[in-house]
Computed example of a mutant assay.
Amino acid sequence: MSQNMLVIGNQDASHCFYLPTPPQIPSNWQYDSFDAIASLIAANGNHWRKILTIMAKLSVLDTNWRNYRDTQLLKQNECLVIGATNLMTNAIHHFVCGHQSAHKLELNMLNMTELKGSEEFISSLHSNLYLCPYFDYRQFPNQHIDNLRRYLDLPALL
């Protein structure tokens, strides 16, 4: 792990979301506490509510992403990784959010292929690595989220 890397959530998570900047972490905050997500949203506002919502939409196995976000997100299967220079070794799926995160990870964009005709995100099919737009609804709207969910063999949310 890089010295400047911050992991928020379960370090052994199967889904890792790589972002360039961290949220404000409330004092005494624990990722596995009952109100962890509500506390993060209260401390960081609508911007982080959107990020956490998109994470939930990409992680939930069914379609009940609201409940998943509020009660389970970051507790078992996901972690946020800020400032990463290496991928988390235990993860199955790596969601690299935005070009800034991809650059920090030194991803070779020439080895990545477009995901089945979709220009919204790029995937390296051999390693479950997904280069996504930054998690904002203007850059990564629900239609694009559903495209990625279908690729992950998850039911559509729309």
Rank of each mutant, 00 (worst) to 15 (best):
Y68I: 02
D146T: 04
E78C: 09
T85E: 15
N28P: 09
L6F: 05
R66M: 12
H126T: 15
N64G: 11
S124D: 13
S124E: 10
L125Q: 07
L87T: 08
D153Q: 10
P22N: 08
V60Y: 05
L19Q: 04
P141N: 13
P141I: 12
W29A: 02
C97R: 00
A156K: 14
F17P: 00
L6W: 07
N67V: 13
L158V: 12
S14P: 11
I145F: 08
A102Q: 04
N64I: 10
N46G: 09
T63E: 11
E106K: 12
I37E: 03
I92L: 11
L148P: 01
S39R: 12
V81R: 09
R66H: 13
Q76K: 14
N44T: 01
S27D: 14
A38L: 02
N86K: 15
V60R: 08
N28Q: 15
C132T: 14
N108M: 06
D12I: 08
L87K: 03
T85R: 11
L110C: 09
W65A: 00
H94N: 06
T113F: 04
L110R: 13
I37F: 03
G117Y: 03
R150P: 02
T53I: 01
V81N: 03
P20R: 08
N28K: 10
A36M: 08
N77K: 11
Q139P: 00
L74R: 00
N44L: 05
L80T: 02
L107W: 05
N64K: 12
H126P: 06
